[in-house]
Design a protein around this nucleic acid. Structure first.
Lengths: 345, 345
DNA sequence: TTGTAGGCGTTATCAA
DNA sequence: TTGATAACGCCTACAA
């Protein structure tokens, strides 16, 4: 029998451990067990209509042959498990795990699965990942910095939700962060406490069009604060950047009484620099961060910060996916940071 | 034409946004474009043998129909993209993102994808996830607490790598952590610095058979330290647990000069309690943590800790997958924590 | 350049 | 209880 020989050939190659070994299929198991492939399927899937004895025998053979069902063949036949692709810039930055947790929770609630990939902060990888991951999933949730036009050739029709990108979109679903409102809340807090000489530590944003700095300066003008652009220092988005920026501010304006930081990471750096310089926080100088990372809570003093519910952000993203899969392009979802007053103001 | 009508029916349902809408296939596009499904395939996959004009027309139709290739059908025919399932107890605990980063990096290097799920520290979910995720992937990397025997019915033949479970295995691949060696290194460090009255904050381990405590007491005995089991306090694995434990130790043994903590989290809690109690660290009491979380570096003083390279742990896990996919059950990979002396000793 | 036939591994349906 | 046959959506090979 030709079929018989062919199967033997396969086994032969398999036992050589060759990489090209053909996969063991239901039919292979069936042949080896002397039943039809259908019976094997019943045994594997614990369907009722099968003799317990046959079942046991078949499962035995299957195990011996190291049979594993093909997820592709299964997916082809069954109602698919929805799989969402998730692209983040960096898994280790504590901002993103919280966001991911929200995505996982919301996905899990719907019985969906999540395929995760990290761009490692590479703008190029961002594009290639959109393409490669996009082919493998039913929808994509992604932190992206590129504008729509540059994204378009890579998206290839996958329903896409872009999170916290500074740009609007008429093509893709969005989850936005009301950064300007956050900055205003933080500034109002400082001003309410009597601060007027407020410095700002800014960073080069990836695509965000300087919302923080612009809002900062707007608020300063509205309240006629005695400050100009020399009170804004731009540094790396890192601990060291934050520390350097604080030193620069402190040197240029020794009389400053408060600092608004681009995010918690640089705020922590600033806190360190302050300690080194003998500047007491908050007595000599108040400090406000941005993001609400949970680590800020471990610090001494704990950081006053604009807390963004990153978990909720992830849930919102999945909710946008819901609507995309239902065939609609939903309006952007917006999340506003909430001021969390703790020890540094 | 029946075929034609059927296609219209599908579209009709689609535009109602029905969940049950049939998926748009190559053949649908072919029909709408008046070509064979084969021609559509060529257009979609940018094969050479096609008239540019036809190609453009077909792609147009495909876009209009929102056609998306089925990843399952493709996977069935093409060499598969390897997908690794990753099960962690908790994404937000800073321990795991670092581990995940290692898995991602190693997977990416091999062109593999990673499907992530979290058990949310539920032992039951652990089992169901092993089963459900296991059906969707080529191999599984997982933090698991169950012993092999309980796992077995859920694994169903997926190559499985278990990470940092206290138990050995003859069935599954392992990545182990040399916890005892770590504890010894930490204790040796304290003893070298002249400490003899050392307390320990322990926690209920999930499956780990009390390695830390046992090793701690062994070392104490070997060096004839003047301590007994009353120097070990068991508390919750949390900030508050750590704080409570430190207070308990300090109350019971006011003369202690050092504390060895179950992990960094409880160590940070202890650090807070110490500050509240007016105990200066490290002058009055030294403190050693375990894990080497990157946040311990932001603290003041930064924590002396047994640093485990969690990224490397993830890479090792993927390497174990490599070998499982090649058909071998590799011996356990072992990683030893490294003492990182910083501000608290 | 385009179309037809067959198969990938699985499950569902229906007949034996 | 079991088995034959036909999908599922795509791709490769070959024929037109």
């Amino acid at each position: 029998m030709a079929g018989q020989r062919e199967t033997e050939d396969r086994r032969g190659r398999d036992s050589l451990g060759a990489r090209t070994a053909k996969r063991v299929t239901l039919r292979d198991v069936a042949e080896a067990a002397g039943v039809s492939h259908q019976t094997v399927s019943r045994a594997i899937n614990s369907k009722g209509e099968i003799d317990p004895e046959t079942r046991r025998r078949v499962l035995d053979v299957a195990r011996r042959l190291r049979y594993r069902p093909s997820r592709f063949a299964r997916g082809l036949v069954n109602p698919e498990v929805v799989t969402v692709g998730l692209i983040v810039p960096d898994v280790v930055n504590p901002y993103f795990p919280e966001f991911m947790a929200g995505v996982f929770a919301a996905a899990d609630q719907r019985g969906w699965q999540v395929l995760v990939a990290s761009t490692e902060n590479s703008r190029d990888r961002e594009l290639t990942l959109v393409r490669s991951l996009g082919r493998q999933v039913d929808a994509l949730v992604a932190y992206l910095s590129h504008p729509d036009a540059q994204l378009e050739p890579y998206v290839g029709g996958v329903p896409l939700v872009i999170v916290d990108r500074g740009l609007d979109s008429s093509t893709y679903a969005l989850v936005k962060v009301a950064t300007a409102d956050g900055v205003r809340a933080g500034m109002r807090h400082l001003i309410d406490r009597g601060h007027r000489r407020i410095g700002m530590i800014d960073c080069e944003p990836v695509c965000d069009p300087l919302v923080r700095r612009r809002t900062f300066l707007e608020v300063a003008e509205e309240h006629a604060l005695p400050i100009d652009e020399s009170w804004v220092v731009v540094e790396d988005q890192s601990l060291d950047g934050g520390a350097a920026a604080f030193e620069a501010l402190h040197t240029a304006h020794p009389d400053l009484t408060a600092v608004f930081a681009f995010n918690d990471l640089v705020a922590i750096g600033a806190l360190r620099a302050a300690r080194r310089l003998g500047v007491r926080v908050p007595d000599d100088c108040a400090l406000v961060g941005y993001d609400g990372l949970s680590v800020t809570d471990l610090l001494d003093p704990p950081l006053t910060t604009l807390h963004l519910d990153k978990r909720r952000l992830g849930e919102l993203a999945v909710h946008q996916v819901d609507q995309l899969l239902a065939g609609e392009l939903p309006p952007p979802a917006v999340l506003t940071p909430r001021l969390n007053v703790r020890g540094t103001t």
